[in-house]
Design a protein around this nucleic acid. Sequence first.
DNA 1: AATGAATGAGCTTTCATTCAT
DNA 2: CATGAATGAAAGCTCATTCAT
Lengths: 200, 200, 200, 200
Amino acid sequence: MAVVDRKLTQRGEERRTQLMEFAAARFAQKGFHPTSVAEIVEGIGVGKGVFYWYFDSKEALLRAILADAQRDLRRRQRAAITDGATPMERIERGIRASIQWSVNHTDHFRLVQFAATDEQFRAGVLKGQQVAVRDAAVHITEAMEAGEIASGDAALLAQFMIGVHTYLVLQVVQGQIEATDAVIDAAVSFCLHGVTGQRS
Amino acid sequence: MAVVDRKLTQRGEERRTQLMEFAAARFAQKGFHPTSVAEIVEGIGVGKGVFYWYFDSKEALLRAILADAQRDLRRRQRAAITDGATPMERIERGIRASIQWSVNHTDHFRLVQFAATDEQFRAGVLKGQQVAVRDAAVHITEAMEAGEIASGDAALLAQFMIGVHTYLVLQVVQGQIEATDAVIDAAVSFCLHGVTGQRS
Amino acid sequence: MAVVDRKLTQRGEERRTQLMEFAAARFAQKGFHPTSVAEIVEGIGVGKGVFYWYFDSKEALLRAILADAQRDLRRRQRAAITDGATPMERIERGIRASIQWSVNHTDHFRLVQFAATDEQFRAGVLKGQQVAVRDAAVHITEAMEAGEIASGDAALLAQFMIGVHTYLVLQVVQGQIEATDAVIDAAVSFCLHGVTGQRS
Amino acid sequence: MAVVDRKLTQRGEERRTQLMEFAAARFAQKGFHPTSVAEIVEGIGVGKGVFYWYFDSKEALLRAILADAQRDLRRRQRAAITDGATPMERIERGIRASIQWSVNHTDHFRLVQFAATDEQFRAGVLKGQQVAVRDAAVHITEAMEAGEIASGDAALLAQFMIGVHTYLVLQVVQGQIEATDAVIDAAVSFCLHGVTGQRS
DNA sequence: AATGAATGAGCTTTCATTCAT
DNA sequence: CATGAATGAAAGCTCATTCAT
C-alpha cells in the first residue's frame, strides 16, 4: 500500500500537517537539500519512521507542500476576485490577493522559488505558473475587450504583473522592504499604469 | 597557501574557466546540490585533484561563478547607460541591457535564483541586488528631480522594474516566452509607464 | 505468555494458516528477506498486530512453515510406502511420493532451498534432510540384504536419489521442465538403474 | 562514469578481487541479505566508500561474483573434457570436473544455491544452468548416436546427472559427506548406470 | 599539476517490532 | 483480537574532501 493511499485518523492527519509545516519552515530557512529528514523529525520530537509513515520520501514531502500551497493561493485569489465589478477591479483585487497571500506565506513562496531551480521540481512549478498566468490573462483580455486598456498580448502583460508581485514579495521575504499598505498600493499602481499605459 | 592566492599560468587560467563554465551549466540544469564534484570533473575528463587545485570547495566554486557573473552584468549595464542623454533614456538603456545580459546568460541567471534560496549563499545575492537597485535608483531620482516623473520612493520603483525584468527572463529561461524585440519593448514600455504613471 | 503456547479458537487457527500460506507464497516468490512483514499483513488486509499475535517474529513464521511442510511431506511418504511389497517397490513409491509432493508444494520446496543458504535456518533444514536420508536408507539396506542390489553405502545411494528428485523438482519449479508422468518415470528409472547398476 | 567502466590500476584490481573473495565467504557463511556492506569493508579494514568505488551496489557485487564463478567453472569443464576419447568418457570427465570444482569452491556453490531463491538473481542462475545442461546434453546425444546408450531425452538425463552432482556437493558443503575419491566414484557410477541403464 | 584511490561522516530509507487505543 | 501509529537501530549508499604517488 503506497503511503499516499493510507487512510489517516484524526491524529494522523495532525501529524502530517505538523510535519509539513515544520519542514516548510526549515526548507525555507536553510534550503531543501541542506535540511535533512533527521533534522525534521528531531525538530518535532518523533522517530524517523514517522516521516516515512506519512511521506514516501523527502521529495514527496516537498511536492505535497508545494501542491498544497498552490491550491490554497488559487482559492484565495478566486475568492478575492469574485466581488470585482469591472475587469480592472478584478485585476487589482487579484494582484492584492496574491501579494497578501505571499506575504503571509513567505515560507511557501520561498519554496516555490527554490523548486524552480531544481530539475526534479521544475516542471511542477511551471505548470502552476501557467495556471496563474492564464487566470490573470482572462481578466486582462476582458479589460481589452471593454476598451479599458489597449489590445495586446494579455498573457505577456499578466506575466509582467506577476513579475512585479513576485519581486516585491521577494524583497519582503529578504527583509529589504516592509510590506506596508503604501508599498502594496505602489506596486498595484505600477502594474495598473504599466498595463493601461499601453493605450496611448 | 589558499587556492585563491595561487598565481595561475595561461593554461591554468583556461582550466579554471572551463571548470566554472561546465559547472555553471550543470548547476543551472540540475541544481547545485544535486550536481556532484565527481560529475563535474568527469564531465571535462580530469581527475578530482584538478578541481581542488583551482577551488577550495564546491561552495567556493559557486561563489566564484556568482561573483564573476555579477561583475560582468554590472560592467555591461554601465557601458550601456553612458550614452543616455536623459535620465529616462538611461533608465531604459539600463533595463534593456539587464534583460539582454540575462537572456544571454541564462545559466548564471538561474544560479542567482537558486543562490537566493540557500542560506549559505543568500547574503551574497542580496548584496548584489542592493547594488543593482541603488544603481537604478540613481537615475530614477534624477528623473524625479528633472520633473519627468512624480517624486516618490525611487528605490521601490527600481525594484518593480527589476521585478518585471527578472520575471520576464525567468519565463524566457523556462521556455515560456521567446525574447523577441517586441517582447522586450513591451517590458520596457510596461516599466516606463509604470514608473511615469505615478505622475498623475 | 509466549505466542506458541496460545490456545487458538477455530477462527484463530484459520488466521494462522492464512498467514502461513500467504507468507509462504511471498517468501517463495521474492525471497524471505526481501519480503517484509508489512507486505504480508497488507496482502491479507489486516493490521500488524495480527501478525505478532500469531507469531513471535518473522523468523518464527518461517520456521513454522518449514516444520509444517516437513511434517506433511514425511506423512505422505510413509503413507505411500506402506503398500510396497518388496524393498525396491517401497523405494520407488517413496521417490514418486517425494516428487509428487514437491511438485504440488513448490513454494515450500523453494523455502527449504532458501533456508539451507541462511545461517539461522540451516540447522533445521539439515536435520530434516538427515531424517529423509535415513528413511530412504532403511529400504535400500533391506534391498541389499535381499540381494536385490549390491552391498554398499546405503545412505550415499539414498542421497543420490534425493539429489535426482531435488534437481528434477528444481527444474520444474523454475519452469524448465514440466512434471509429466513420462518425466517422473524417467527420473525413477534413472534412480533405480543408478542404484541397482552397482551390482555388476 | 559508471563504476563498471572504470579503468583500474594494479592495486585497484587487487582490491576488487579482495572484496569479491571476502564477500563471497561471508555471503556463503551468513547468507547474502544478513551480510551488510559495513561488515565487508570492516572485515578488510577499509572505508565504506571503497566498496562503492568498485561496485555499484551490493547486488552488483553478488552478480559479479556469480558471473566470475560461472565463467571459471565452465572453463574447467571444457578443459577436462577435451581429452575424452569417447562420449561416455567425456561425460564422466565432465561430471568429475564439476564435482571437483564445486568441492573446491564451496562458497560459490552456496551462492548459486542462494541466488536461485531470490527473485532478483534467479534469472541469471537459470541462464547458467541452461548452459550447463546444454553442454552436457551434447555429449549424451553423441553417446546415443554412437549407440552407447538408448535414445531419449538427452537434456533430461543431463539434468538428472547435474542433480546427483549438485546434491552430492550440497551434502559435502553441509558437512554430511566427505568428498573422498570413493564417494565421487560412486556418484559417477550412479550417473553412468542411470544413464546407460535406459538401454535394456 | 594531475590522478585514482580512499576516507568516513552523514544521508535517505527500510523494517522488525512494540504499544496505546 | 485488532488497528494504526510510532520506534529507532541499522541498512545501503553518496559525496565533499584528502592524499599517496
